[in-house]
Design a protein around this nucleic acid. Structure first.
Length: 589
RNA sequence: GGAGCCUUAGCUCAAUUGGUUAGAGCGCUGCCCUGUCACGGCAGAGGUUGCGGGUUCGAGCCCCGUAGGCUCCGCCA
């Protein structure tokens, strides 16, 4: 005989007088001294069980001993609830099961935290994750994640893509994120690296003629976690041959549309707007702009072309720029808030944050005394300055000004609660990223996306001319509400061009063949033009679930310091394990 | 590698300027209660104030260190 005949979400008035067997957890027990109600919960729902002492005294006595989260098995008869006692909040609320047998499968101790309220003590949740997963919001999130993954597989299959698994144990190629190293037992002193992305494998699949590949891939990066990023991540990884950027956009717009339809039942635009990286930085001060609110960055260098104000003068003379944002109606900003914004400005490289408060027809500002009447007039027109406005300035190198004002723009929007429609979804593509960026720290050029990214064909002459900062890449990011949820590029498929890029990145011929010989060799045997993208499943899930905490969308996440509080990993290992791996510890903590 | 905030009962939190026996709500335990649905009522138990040290007549509160949680910068091709 099976454990149960139906789930706790199944019974309706149409089942009256049937004799079901149910299993589940005691969600709550209401003991009236006489009659006892038990809300029985399983993964499918909740059903009220009623035990009546006048029908079975011993049974009621046993039911009296039930406690929250005990696991039980009951049999009984489906009855219509007494008139007026139906529970409209339950799908099964029209009926109840009058218990005739009760079997206690496993008793539960008092839980370390309640399941019916949101709690903040995250280490407790993580150390008892199996209990936390019983909470309705976690159940919902995991179900949404399942739906996202099923929908992705169905859609990609329909589009003719082949799901191919690639190795987790890969080769260390110390470009990009720090890798997790895995010692080899059979090759002492040699190491695998956990895949930080299936990037090279998927390109080799293209060389292998697969043409259309996708995978829901686990990736590992040994970098410090953040609220929206852990060391382990899941990507929808996609690569296709004979695809241009345009083909990727269409494919992904379709996929994202299906995902939002199937998970939240939402229809979203079939095409997403596009913004170049240059324009995104100029107007929003971010390569992942949140376009749900205005407050754009406005260049005002022209107005102050011949200013005497030292701060602006210095920035302009050093080839920098002056920009401002108008935080409409924020003249009432407090001293503390100004201080906070100034901290942000400093954090991102500005020396300070100049501002003007427009109150009672007056410009209240420590800097306005340096402005001429003409400059004030031009500024008023350019920024549409009105009573009650707060103007915030940035004057420095272009990149710093954009970044600083971009960050301040986002904070101002939070403070002013400019996003009024919580359901709004602003998708956009950011395109034409720079190919290369100079790293002051490393003293050399690095790839903005990754070293396999294709330069835009029309910018190849700039590459030849050594104007590396001007070369744009055939690369794109997908942004939703100011969050980067994916990124990709068209790749290099020619051995010669790839070698040249490696050279530019400071990877000489010897190192090239050592680290990337497999790829360069493949390119010599007819690798087709190809490109792809990777979508961050965890980030996308956060947006779908409306949470700011990435742990809410992962069944067994690590803590913010990378520890697993349930298993307590990482952990020490026994000496013989280390001996087998030819590893000797230099430091014991 | 750096910075900030937090840690008091099982949980969420309070505790005036450093001053009596560290409180509340929920939960828990027992009793009462026959139509509730976060049932209700009465009573009770429950504390190494994360840990270690220091200052002080006196420390939950101040100082130093340490562990853990969260967040941010760097980092994340």
């Amino acid at each position: 005989m099976s454990y149960r005949t139906c789930t706790c979400g199944a019974l309706r008035a149409t089942h009256l007088d049937s004799r079901p067997i149910l299993c589940g957890w005691v969600d709550s027990r209401r003991d009236h001294g006489g009659v006892i109600f038990v809300d029985l919960r399983d993964s499918e729902g909740v059903t009220q069980i009623v035990f009546r002492p006048e029908e079975n005294h011993a049974l009621a006595k046993l039911a009296h001993s039930l406690r929250s989260e005990d696991v039980i098995r009951i049999s009984g008869r489906v009855a219509r609830r007494l008139s007026g006692t139906e529970n409209t909040r339950l799908a099964t609320g029209e009926i109840e099961v009058v218990g005739s047998t009760l079997e206690i499968l496993n008793r539960a101790e008092v839980l370390p935290f309640p399941l019916n309220s949101e709690i903040s003590n995250e280490d407790l949740r993580l150390s008892h994750r199996y209990l936390d997963l019983r909470r309705p919001s976690m159940v919902r999130n995991l179900r949404l994640r399942h739906r996202l993954q099923q929908t992705t597989r169905a859609y990609m299959d329909e589009q003719g893509f082949l799901e191919v698994e690639t190795p987790i144990l890969g080769k260390s190629t110390p470009e990009g994120a720090r890798e997790f190293l895995v010692p080899s037992r059979t090759y002492p002193g040699h190491f695998y690296a956990l895949a930080q992305s299936p990037q090279q494998y998927k390109q080799l699949l293209m060389a292998g003629g697969i043409e259309k590949y996708f995978q829901i891939a686990k990736c590992f990066r040994d970098e410090d976690p953040r609220a929206d990023r852990l060391m382990e991540l899941t990507q929808v990884d996609i690569e296709a041959s004979f695809f241009k950027s345009e083909d990727i956009f269409v494919l992904i717009e379709g996929l994202i549309g299906r995902i939002f339809q199937d998970t939240l039942g939402l229809r979203i635009p079939t095409q997403f707007p596009r913004l170049t990286y240059q324009e995104a930085m100029e107007r929003f001060g971010s390569d992942k702009p949140d376009t749900r609110f205005e407050v754009e960055l406005i260049g005002i260098g022209e107005i102050f072309r011949s200013t005497e104000f030292k701060v602006f003068r210095g920035a302009l003379d050093n080839g920098g720029c002056v920009k401002a944002i108008n935080a409409k109606g924020f003249a009432h900003i407090t001293t503390g808030q100004i201080e906070e914004l100034t901290q942000i400005a400093r954090q991102y490289g500005a020396k300070g944050l100049a501002f003007i408060k427009v109150e009672n027809g007056e410009w209240k500002s420590p800097i306005v005394k340096f402005f001429t009447a003409e400059e004030k007039k031009a500024l008023t027109a350019r920024l549409n300055i009105e009573e009650g406005d707060l103007i915030l300035f940035g004057a420095d190198k272009w990149a710093i000004v954009c970044e600083v004002l971009g960050r301040i723009r986002v904070r101002v929007a939070e403070l002013l609660k400019l996003v009024t429609d919580a359901t709004r979804l602003d998708f956009l593509w950011v395109v034409d990223f720079p190919l290369l960026a100079f790293s002051e720290e490393a003293g050399k050029w690095g790839a903005v996306h990754h070293p396999f990214t294709r330069p835009k064909t029309e910018d190849l002459p700039l590459l030849d001319a050594g104007k590396f900062d001007q070369v744009r890449a055939e690369a794109y990011d997908l942004v939703l509400n100011g969050v980067e949820i994916g990124g990709g590029s068209i790749r290099i498929h020619e051995q010669e061009l790839q070698a040249r890029i490696f050279e530019t990145l400071g990877i000489g011929p010897e190192k090239q063949s050592l680290l990337f010989g497999h790829l360069l060799r493949a390119f010599q045997f007819g690798t087709p033009p190809h490109g792809g993208i990777a979508l961050g499943v965890d980030r996308l899930m956060m947006l779908l679930c409306g949470t700011a905490n990435i742990r809410d969308v992962i069944a067994f996440p690590k803590s913010s310091r990378g520890q697993d509080l349930l298993f307590f990993s990482p952990s020490e290992v026994e000496a013989h394990q280390l001996r087998e791996l030819s590893i000797q510890l230099t430091r014991k903590s």
